[in-house]
């Protein structure tokens, strides 16, 4: 998340401290000119693809991290104000400041992400202890042999962890 692409001509300057957002209706222009957002989209897709396509559980988790990082990038980029100072108000300091709210959000989200990763890795360890593999396909075979997965016909649900993404909008 520290990969903060500098140099983008920030425009989404939300003077949140003052409580009055500006730049209404220009969000579209913002998207068109900003590589930070393009990077965001790329990272999002790469992460999603890893989660769906990679058979290794740990790599799925890595994909998940990429996916989340992309979102952090989105927020950080949105906070950037051209020429803005860090949002620490000295007495008598003068604006404009970078919006602090997204930073707070990202900090929180990082904490959430770390705990998620921890839980995910713990589960991976348990799975590895139990079955000696982290490959999904092998794993599913083992589970089916063990009877934990319905092997019979017509019982979907072994649909892998693919979640189909944003199919319905």
């Amino acid at each position: 998340m520290t990969a903060l692409p500098a140099g983008s001509a920030a425009h989404a300057a939300f003077d949140v401290l003052a409580g009055s957002p500006v730049a209404a209706g220009t969000a579209l222009d913002v998207l068109g000119t900003r590589h930070a957002y393009v990077t965001f989209a790329l990272l999002l897709c790469i992460g999603l693809y890893m989660m769906i396509a990679n058979p290794n559980l740990v790599k799925k988790v890595i994909g998940l991290n990429l996916f989340q990082t992309a979102i952090f990038l989105l927020f950080i980029a949105s906070a950037y104000v051209e020429g803005g100072a860090i949002p620490i108000v000295y007495s008598g300091g003068e604006g404009p400041y970078v919006s602090p709210l997204p930073h707070v959000i990202v900090l929180t989200a990082i904490v959430v992400g770390v705990s998620l990763t921890a839980v995910a890795l713990a589960l991976c360890i348990r799975i590895y202890d139990e079955y000696g593999t982290l490959r999904v396909d092998t794993l599913r075979e083992l589970l089916r042999e063990e009877g934990s997965l319905p092997a019979g016909p017509g019982l979907p649900g072994g649909e892998s962890s693919g979640e189909g993404g944003d199919g319905d909008d």
């Binding site: 989660m51 979102i71 589960l123 991976c124 799975i127 139990e130 979640e163």
Partner: peptide, 29 residues
């Protein structure tokens, strides 16, 4: 449950659930 099967089910839920929450976060963004 401490079984391999439940860990696998849980991990599956974790990945999908996190993607869900993250997509929500993107929307919020």
């Amino acid at each position: 449950d401490r079984s391999g099967a439940s860990a696998y089910a849980s991990l599956k839920y974790l990945v999908v659930g996190t993607v869900g929450a993250s997509l929500y976060l993107v929307g919020v963004g």
